[in-house]
Design a protein around this nucleic acid. Structure first.
Lengths: 360, 360
DNA sequence: TTGTATGCGTTATCAG
DNA sequence: CTGATAACGCATACAA
């Protein structure tokens, strides 16, 4: 029963490989033991075609008993597909990013996929290299989380073997060709401004992201300018400072706002909780206490916002859900076989009132 | 030249697959175009055996020109190895963990490996499932980062196809069979206690991790008890509270220390910066300000420690380096072909003085 | 519904 | 140093 004839005249290898290496059980072993063909085993594994209940039971039993796991290389070789999805990020230890990854992971795991997290350090060449590595690995899809990419790179990416979706940031030329899930930066900032306005603030400073960051830099600044205008509030240019989302830059921007203005704003809106934290610290070192002397508002609603004293009023971006949706988009693309449909999905934000902004 | 005879009588397939699918260039294409055998191409790709300069040049040129990337499935099938290493963590958005992952990633990337990050949510079954998934993927090795595992599970793990190393936490039965890289919890806590003692504190409270956490719970408590004893300092049991490393638990523990003690400690040492942050907040809500009324010290030296006001004195654990070393250990295991050697490597800690502890 | 026989792209063995 | 070719384990078109 174990020696099915092989019609080619070469010797049958015994089950153990060259040097007693750990040979794992294969679909052939299962087939023989269950007295069916490998095709049948394959069918029950993949549920691809109907198999009689009797055989199904028998096969399943043998699979179970031998703890058979299909070899993913062989499977990949045969199908040209893997069950891995890649995620490229600039910095995995950034809380916003890791929360997004968590969301991606959550749905990927449910779908039986594993995610490969790759860090680019914000380096374009490295990013390209990782994309290629992912292509070698035959990733079924990839998600770019928090990456700032321009139109040229988008075009290159569209040529990859897998669908790509962006999350948290969108392509910088406005033409979204790659599917993207994102929060509405303009309206999120507008809502923050309105919140400040409602609290009685009229002179509002702004600590911005870098100018070369489309979604989180340019867009948010645009949101700030237009909403201030709508409210008919004036904004001296010296009320606007460009940081880089870091704590230190928040501190520095605060200092410059203080130094460059005879009349200080009564509130400062920062584009990340981290910069807001820096701003609070900077204000303190300038002898200003928050919120008595100055109100400060953050953005993101990372855990940090709650840990600070005073706890930060901020706008919550649901990064976990954003990651989940991105993964869902990716899977739907993978299922439809399309590289990109240009779909853009938004995730809702929400102003969170805590103690760093006071009513005046 | 393109039609090498095939001696078996079946038709030669044309290069395009069934439906104009994206067929990628294979080693055969390269071999034909460079007028050599696939074996030779394989040799130059892997540098496995000497190939004449002339052929090497020719092959390389063709590879370059066609942007040939070996198919990792085929390669894996032939070698039974992948260039994937798995990392299992409980919570990817925990800063301590993500920093460790960053370190792992750093060396893995250099070595040409990609890492697969899997989240277990601290769930044992899920952890087992992920381990099996990694086995299916033929991961070359896996790192357990910050996972609390007991002896039984270690034994199971040793049966996996790949070497495993633990980082940040060690096996809970003291017998280290799995290679691990870790910081010295006992001495780190001792150094913190000595720091407090040197600053004049004699009544010291302790906010501990959970009792079922071997490395970060039990060990640190042990460090606290023995070092207090060495210093001949008394510790009422009501000075010791068990948290779970969260901000909220830090707050709660602080409250209980306050409620359960007529004579308050002058300093409280928390086993994570996060709990220390909670403790600061808890103290504030009790009318105690830090460090005037009470000194509080953290552990880990996450970024949060610097962001807080007052900035936390704490003990720095170099998690990034710890991750790097773990990866290095894993690679050395992979190279030697051993599953485990029981090696234990320590990473140095350091007390960081900031402003949450005052001299008395 | 089930079985047979390839092909998938590499590596590695074994001859030259 | 080089070439021919048998695995590697699975999926699937084609037969039965």
């Amino acid at each position: 029963m174990y020696n099915l004839e092989v019609g080619k005249g070469f010797p049958i290898l015994s089950k153990k490989g060259r040097e007693g290496e750990h040979m794992s059980v294969t679909i052939d072993d299962i087939a023989k033991e269950a007295r069916v063909s490998t095709a049948t085993v394959s069918r029950v594994i993949n549920g691809s075609k109907a198999v009689s209940p009797e055989l199904t039971r028998r096969v399943l039993e043998v699979i179970e008993r031998n703890r058979f796991k299909p070899n993913s290389f062989a499977r990949g070789l045969a199908t040209d597909k893997s069950s891995i999805i890649g995620v490229i990020v600039a910095d995995i230890s950034n809380p916003v990013i890791s929360t997004t990854i968590k969301g991606i992971n959550h749905v990927a795991q449910q779908k039986g996929y594993t995610v490969m997290v790759c860090e680019s350090d914000g380096n374009g060449d490295k990013e390209q290299m990782l994309l290629e590595r992912l292509e070698e690995q035959k990733a079924s899809g990839v998600i770019l989380a928090g990456m700032n990419v321009d139109h040229n790179r988008i075009q290159q990416m569209l040529r990859m073997d897998f669908p790509i979706v962006m999350v948290t940031q969108q392509s910088s030329d406005g033409k979204i060709t790659i599917n993207t899930v994102i929060h509405d930066n303009i309206n999120a900032i507008r809502d923050a401004v309105v919140f400040l306005h409602t609290s009685g603030h009229r002179r509002i400073g702004f600590i911005c992201g870098p100018e070369n960051d489309y979604s989180s830099g340019i867009k948010r600044l645009e949101g700030f300018r237009t909403s201030m205008e709508e409210l008919q509030l004036e904004v001296p240019e010296s009320y606007i400072m460009f940081g880089d989302f870091s704590y230190e830059s928040g501190r520095e921007c605060m200092r410059r706002i203080f130094e460059e203005n005879a009349i200080m704003p009564t509130a400062v809106l920062a584009c990340s909780d981290l910069m807001a934290a820096g701003a609070v610290s900077g204000a303190a070192s300038l002898g200003l206490s928050v919120p008595q002397d100055l109100s400060i508002m953050g953005f993101d609603d990372t855990d940090l916002a709650r840990y600070l004293n005073p706890a930060l009023s901020t706008v919550r971006i649901p990064y976990f859900e954003e990651g989940e949706k991105a993964a869902e988009e990716l899977f739907s693309l993978m299922e439809s076989g399309e590289k990109a449909t240009g779909k853009l999905v938004y995730v809702p934000h929400k102003v969170i009132r805590r103690f760093s902004v006071r009513k005046i």
